[in-house]
């Protein structure tokens, strides 16, 4: 908890702070996050398939503040115990990739980009789910006056060249 409490608000460490919530109770997590000072610059929302490393946060560092990360990393932390309870909790999560009916996911996704200046989407090449949301997400973003950037396929471990290109495109989208 002390380590999370000391995290800065932006960059790759913001990814760590967000995902620390997998191990804390919601109340503890919210209390810790509320101590972090707000970021600066245009508001960026990350969307797309699950990303288990802070690469997208690092790419956006210094270009704006990430106000929401909707790349599903796992909103419920698997813990020893009753697997049925865990599955029940996952089923309640509207941004779980297999949320049913899938319209719940779409609504939560569109709600999640509220207030964004830029929505940045990227997907895993094996994606079967999120890709069906992309045209609708673009429309929703543009309808609220935000820009929408589709980075296309994000490699499992993006190399520096991919990261440089992504950063350039995000900077252009924000300019």
């Amino acid at each position: 908890m002390d380590a999370v409490n000391a995290l800065p608000p932006g960059g790759a460490d913001a990814f760590v702070a967000r995902n620390a919530g997998r191990w804390f109770s919601p109340e503890d997590h919210i209390a810790l996050l509320s101590r972090l000072s707000g970021g600066e610059g245009p508001k960026i929302v990350l969307a797309g398939t699950a990303c288990d490393i802070p690469v997208m946060h690092a790419i956006c560092d210094g270009l704006g503040q990430i106000v929401a990360d909707l790349q599903e990393y796992g909103f419920q932390m698997p813990q020893p115990g009753n697997a049925a309870d865990l599955l029940t909790e996952i089923a309640k999560t509207p941004l779980a990739p297999r949320a049913a009916p899938p319209g719940r996911f779409t609504r939560a996704l569109h709600d999640g980009i509220a207030g964004a200046d830029l929505v940045v989407a990227s997907v895993d090449p094996n994606d079967d789910s999120f890709g069906w949301e992309l045209p609708g997400l673009r429309q929703a973003a543009e309808a609220q006056g935000a820009r929408f950037l589709d980075l296309g396929f994000r490699p499992f471990r993006p190399d520096p060249a991919w990261q440089d290109t992504a950063r350039l495109r995000i900077a252009e989208a924000l300019s």
């Binding site: 997907v123 994606d127 079967d128 890709g131 992309l134 045209p135 673009r138 589709d150 396929f153």
Partner: peptide
């Protein structure tokens, strides 16, 4: 052209 990616079923 609609924005669906090329690896979708």
């Amino acid at each position: 052209a609609l924005g669906f990616h090329a690896h979708l079923p």
